[in-house]
């Protein structure tokens, strides 16, 4: 045990000069400034690679100097590197898997991507999302309509807090000020040129109009054929839609009948896309009713007979399916 005395003193800390710490600090600050500025340029597809490159350089400074790894035992670097290697394996395989899933290809308009970018309170989305419907109904009650640009949008719970109240005043003040200043000046001047300009534009319109009614009489005949929905009463279409949802047709055929339901990817025979008018065994109401009642003639298909659904309801579903054709 006595030999310890010597080894105690042998642990001399490796002290870096102050200039390294301050140098790294200023490098990190400058790099932060660069990322913020570059992000404001709107570089599009280049933005992520640039931001990540700068972040990696910053990380290198922190790990190498602040965390001392450059000067420490290589064994520690091995541990750090191993975590990065496994992180790479994890990311690479997951990203590869993500890209290989055909249900997630944007062109296929899966349910996930269908919602992306649509207004939060889009009526189509609210139909299938009760929770979101509740949020939107409450916002509507407050007179707070979603417009998609939240930076200028009204604030939820406006009355409860002081800041939105201020904003509310600004909102009210604006429309009040608008008619007061520019309107009375601008109004009298604009009507004068208007009558001059008007006659030039309406002139071709009456000329064009007569051709439209002339074309109409021929049009009504093909029109119902193109959009068969017009033939059916709204009540049976609504009932058909309800039954389509209640009988889980959407799991394979998708919410809009595009054949893109969640289960579709796993099926050996892909479901019909009704939106494209792809009724596989005939596009008449009777044909659809027949497939629905007896199942698909193709034995490999997952479309089994739905004869247990009452006859009337089956007709309603068939009508609804025919109405999905765009």
């Amino acid at each position: 045990m006595s030999h310890h005395k010597d080894s105690h003193g042998s642990h001399e800390p490796h002290v870096l000069p102050l200039s390294i710490y301050f140098g790294v600090f200023f490098a990190l600050m400058i790099l932060t400034y660069i990322t913020v500025k570059v992000s404001q340029l709107g570089l599009g597809a280049l933005a992520i690679p640039i931001a990540m490159t700068v972040a990696l350089i910053k990380a290198g400074f922190v790990v190498g100097y602040f965390m001392h790894l450059r000067y420490d035992d290589r064994f520690l670097s091995l541990f750090f590197a191993s975590s990065i290697v496994f992180l790479g394996v994890f990311f690479a395989f997951t990203v590869y898997d993500l890209g290989a899933r055909d249900t997630w290809v944007p062109e296929e308009h899966t349910q996930v991507n269908l919602i992306d970018g649509k207004p939060f309170c889009d009526p189509e989305i609210l139909k299938n999302n009760d929770r979101r419907k509740k949020v939107c109904d409450e916002a509507k009650k407050r007179g707070d309509h979603g417009h998609g640009h939240g930076a200028h949008g009204n604030v939820v719970k406006a009355a409860a807090h002081p800041t939105p109240a201020k904003r509310g005043v600004a909102k009210v003040a604006q429309p009040a000020a608008r008619p007061a200043t520019p309107a009375p000046v601008a109004r009298p001047t604009t009507p004068a040129p208007a009558p001059v300009a008007r006659p030039t534009t309406p002139a071709p319109a009456p000329a064009a109009r007569p051709t439209a009614p002339a074309a109409r009489p021929t049009a009504p005949a093909p029109a119902p054929a193109a959009r068969p929905a017009a033939q059916f009463d709204a009540a049976s279409l609504a009932a058909g839609k309800k039954l389509y949802q209640a009988n889980a047709c959407w799991t394979c055929h998708g919410n809009e009948g595009k054949g893109d339901g969640a289960a579709a990817a796993a099926l050996p025979v892909k479901p019909a896309n009704f939106a494209l008018g792809n009724y596989k065994y005939g596009g008449s109401l009777g044909d659809i009713y027949k497939v629905l009642s007896n199942g698909s003639p193709n034995k490999a298909s997952g479309m089994v007979a739905y004869a247990h659904i009452p006859d009337n309801d089956r007709w309603s579903i068939a009508k609804y399916l025919l109405s999905l054709k765009k």
């Binding site: 949020v135 604030v155 800041t163």
Partner: peptide, 20 residues
């Protein structure tokens, strides 16, 4: 939180499109 941007199912801000 003030805007109604809460985590998960409590989210209640309707001005951002998509799946905010």
């Amino acid at each position: 939180f003030h805007l109604g941007i809460f985590p998960g199912k409590y989210y209640a801000y309707t001005h951002i499109p998509g799946n905010p």
